[in-house]
Amino acid sequence: MKLEIKNVSKRYGRKKYGVKDFSLTIEKGILGLLGPNGAGKSTLMKMIATVNKPSEGIILLNKNNIVKDVNYIRQQMGFLPQDFGVYPNLNAFEFLEYMAAVKGVGGVGLKQRIEKLLDGLNLLDVASKPIGKYSGGMKQRIGIAQTLLNDPRIIIFDEPTVGLDPEERVRFRNLISDLATQSIVILSSHIVSDVDIIADEVAIMKKGSLITKGKTQNIIEQVKGKIFETQFDTDVSPRFSDHIKILSTTRYQGKTTVRYVSEVPIEKSTPQKPTLEDAYLYLTHN
């Protein structure tokens, strides 16, 4: 299983790009996609999912050009968009049966597969109620169920943990890890810790371009020895020079702690162990 994105651009208007000259190769495992709002993550995912067509470049799945042969990926893909909806008048069973037909799968095992998925997602008891009555988190789970309907070999999750509470997020991360044993999983999230825990590789995007890609540890390495913390009284307002990039500020019992990234630390600073979030903030703000 190999997904190759080659010099892909999505252009809106003459000079405005959603994604610009993007290249990336993904093999089995989880790729975490990080980037600020407007970085082009969703646009890239929609192009892979064949919702949008690239303005330039090609996307190959196992050497098949899916920009031209869209059905090749559609039959083996699971896609959970960021802002998807449902038909409120259908119940969970009907909606998933419909989604199976939409994806071009069926057969004798369909009912049982839907039942097991709904059971795992703890929606079996309410499966005969119209989805219009579900809460946001329950709808999100219906979205997850449809993603897994066709035994997908390539799975695209755009902000999948939105609407899930912390405990559900942990379970969902376990599920994604299971999926990644035999599939390509591309996952975008604003929650860096989600990506940090489960992604085999991380790609960081900014303004439509890829700024770095690699193993989580390799990305963190880029800020090794550059992360510091300093503390001062809250009523003091120290000035930081331009070469210092502040990552976070916390206030506690009259003291303010500032975490920052810099080649050279300022006075009374202590070096800190870098995290993916530090690296992400450093790379996207530089």
Binding site: G120, L121, V126, S135, M138, N174
Partner: peptide, 10 residues
Amino acid sequence: ILPKAELKDI
């Protein structure tokens, strides 16, 4: 709106 239900392991 229906009561909340936890996500299980699949």
